[in-house]
Design a protein around this nucleic acid. Structure first.
Lengths: 208, 208
DNA sequence: TGATAATTTGAACACCGTTCAATACATTTG
DNA sequence: CAAATGTATTGAACGGTGTTCAAATTATCA
């Protein structure tokens, strides 16, 4: 049955078209200004077509979230994967995270700030899958640090991973939401990395 | 001149009416669902009246931001002000910050996440005034910790204050934006405070 | 080719922020 | 007190939004 397959393929093509147009507009103009009509105009379809592929704007957002996650977080962890020393890898991961957040604020917002309702359980699990994998990697790194003698054996990997994540997430969002303007005249990015250096210095010296 | 004063007073009353109605709707339904028309309906005026007191919705938001800041941050720092030991005070401030963020997510969003354009310089400075004061208090606390021998003398108060702020801000926003769902089955608030305890433990032990 | 099925449309609905001529009201003046 | 002036408020209108669905179009099959 070639026809059904071709139809399905064409359907997917339109869906991808919608997604990439939505992504482009989103990255350029933010969530608020990404309208269904703009997307439709960009891909030269009528607004209605979008509702044949996504239940509503929120579901479209979810799809963008998933895409951003699998593309970017994977690359982030991959970029530091061949650093043998787990402590150095932890530090490098944090810095790469800061860099990613600074350079891709809209993508970052999509992944870690934007609220989207998730009633369907299937959707929910899909939403968290990639994030859970990233946290898994982080926790694995922490365990490696324990085994390498960098950390005490009795620490809680959950609490420590959340501390680490919370630190870099906090720095990124304070920066991208322009709250570091409070530090008048400072080089904000430099300050972020200085704060992280102090932090990772603490972790390095004192979790043992 | 009693009349002009009464007029001014009445004007301010309407402005306060708008602000408190906006605040109520905002806290209940979030920024997106806080519409000019809803505010106007709530205070039993026409939509146009709001534009006689605020240039646009963004300026209304700015006014709400200022109000939230002066009310809440002041109270937060005041609540820990009589803890004599600076290290204990620092820890207590962090925990109070977490508690505030958890209990007042919408207010917190208004203060630390929401973006609002600020073209006018006067508006800009007004926006940052209270925040800068809070950061000033934090830095003062850090200096006290240095003087009390808790911290080394050569640390950078800016970097350390940002590290501290980044940590608690990160934890609060990961929680309120529901990203801690990744830690399946965990008591999220408990986990937050555990992460903070690990963090403050590091600070306590190792910044010296 | 004609009938059937799938796809796509775009007008319509109810909302939104914002503007501004027209109205209603308060005050002052004759 | 009544008319004239000035101020405060209105609400219809504009162009936008997300969303729906009867209708039109297009593709497939007999």
């Amino acid at each position: 049955m070639g026809i059904a397959e071709r139809k399905e393929r064409e359907r997917e093509e339109v869906k991808d078209l919608i997604l990439s147009a939505a992504r482009e507009i989103f990255l350029e103009e933010g969530y608020e200004n990404t309208s269904i009509r703009k997307i439709a105009t960009k891909i030269e379809y009528s607004p209605g077509i979008i509702y044949l592929h996504f239940r509503d704007k929120n579901e479209l957002l979810l799809a963008l979230h998933d895409k951003a996650f699998e593309c970017k977080m994977e690359a982030l962890f991959h970029s530091v994967q061949d650093i043998p020393d787990p402590m150095e890898r932890l530090s490098a991961t944090g810095k790469a995270y800061l860099r990613y957040g600074i350079d891709n604020p809209k993508d970052y917002e999509l992944m870690f700030i934007l609220s989207c309702t998730m009633e369907a359980l299937a959707v929910k699990q899909e939403f968290w899958k990639d994030g859970a994998q990233a946290i898994g990697m982080l926790k694995h790194n922490i365990v490696e640090c324990m085994e390498a003698g960098y950390f005490k054996k009795d620490i809680d990997p959950d609490a420590v991973s959340l501390m680490l994540w919370g630190q870099v997430h906090g720095l990124v969002t304070l920066y991208t939401k322009e709250r570091l303007n409070i530090y008048e005249g400072a080089d904000q990015q430099k300050l972020m990395f200085e704060a992280f250096d102090v932090f990772i210095g603490l972790v390095r010296k004192c979790l043992i």
